[in-house]
Design a protein around this nucleic acid. Sequence first.
DNA 1: AGAATCATGTAAGTCGTTACATGATTTG
DNA 2: CAAATCATGTAACGACTTACATGATTCT
Lengths: 185, 185
Amino acid sequence: MSLRHAALGLLALRGEASGYDLLGIFNESLDHVWPATQSQLYTELGKLTDAELVRVVAEGGRGRKAYAVTEAGRKEFEHWLLEEPPTTNRRNDTLLRVFFLGLVPTEQGREFLLGRAAAAAEMHDRLRDVEGSLTDEQGPLAVHGRIALEWGLRYSTMQNEWARWAAQQLDAAESSDVPSAPPAP
Amino acid sequence: MSLRHAALGLLALRGEASGYDLLGIFNESLDHVWPATQSQLYTELGKLTDAELVRVVAEGGRGRKAYAVTEAGRKEFEHWLLEEPPTTNRRNDTLLRVFFLGLVPTEQGREFLLGRAAAAAEMHDRLRDVEGSLTDEQGPLAVHGRIALEWGLRYSTMQNEWARWAAQQLDAAESSDVPSAPPAP
DNA sequence: AGAATCATGTAAGTCGTTACATGATTTG
DNA sequence: CAAATCATGTAACGACTTACATGATTCT
C-alpha cells in the first residue's frame, strides 16, 4: 500500500499538485524506487479523496485538479514514514534461478552468473553517470537523492562481486565432483 | 510470472510431486526467495495442466494428484532459466522513505536509518545461524543454497553499512545547513 | 491547421493475499 | 475417538499493468 504514501509524500513536499504533476515526478525522480502508472495514480487519488487524506484545492483549465494533503493525510503519512517498518522485498528472481542452476550443465550456470555480474557492472556505470550530473545540485532533495543513489552503487557492487564469487563456487564444486584430471603435485 | 517457473523447476528436481509436496518445499526452502501460498499454488498447477506444461501422472488417497513436467514444460523452464533476463526488483520501500526523510526533523531521520542498520544486522545474524546448520549438508542443492545464502549475507552487510553511512550524511548536511555552534578551533 | 502537450478517466486481465470450505487418513 | 496431518479447491479483494477513450490548450 505504498503508492498511497508516495503520493501523500509528494503532495506534502510540493504543497499542491495535480495528478499529472505527480505522474511527472514519479517518472522522473521515483522511477527506480517506486514506479507508478497513470492509471494507478489517478485511481489512487480518487481513493485518497474519498478517505479524506487529500483534498481538491483548485480546479484549472483542461479539467485540471490540484490536490493538497489534509491534516489526516499528513498524520497518516508520518505514521507510515516513521512507525511502520519497511517491508523487505522477499521475491528475488535471480536467486530463484540460482536455486535451480543444478538442473543445467555447469558451463551454462557459469554463463548465467557472469551475465548477472556484467548486468550489475552496467547498472553501476549508469548510476555513476547520474552521480556525475548530480554533484552540482543543491538543496535537501540532493542529500536524500544522493543517499538513495549510494544505495544503488553499493548494491550493484555487491551483486557484481557476489556473482563472480558464485561462478567460482560452481567451478570448485564441479572439480570436486568430477575429478577427471587430478591437480598437479 | 515466476511462480509458474518455480513450480516447474521443483517438479523437474523432484521428478514428481503433489501440490501439497510443492507447498512444503516452498515454505521450507524457497520462503526467502519466492514465497507462495497454498491457494496460489493449486491455482497455478491447474493452469499449468491446461497449458500442458505439467501432467497428472498418478492419483493417490485423499484426492492426491502427483504431477510431472512434460517435454514442453521442461523446455519452457529452461528458456526461462537461461534465456529470460531476471527482472530487477525496482520497488524499494526503504529507499522510498529515504526520499521523504527531509519532511521530518533530522533526529527522526537518523533514528529511521539506524533502525534499518539494526534490522540488517539482525538479518545477518539469522543467516549466520542458518549457515551454521548447513555446513554438514552435502549434494548439489547445498552448493546452490549456499550461494543464495551468501547473497543474503552480503546484502545485509551492505545494507547495514549503507544505513550507518547515510545517518552520518544527514548529520553532516544538518551541521552545514544550521551552523548553530561553530566547530572548535 | 496540425502536432505536441496537458489532463483525466475507465475496463480488462494478471498476480498475490486472506479467508472460507471440505473431506480422508493417520497417530496417540 | 480426538487431534494432527494430508490434501484439494473456491471466493473476495487489493495492487499493478496494458490498453482504450476523450477532450482542451498551446506551440510551430
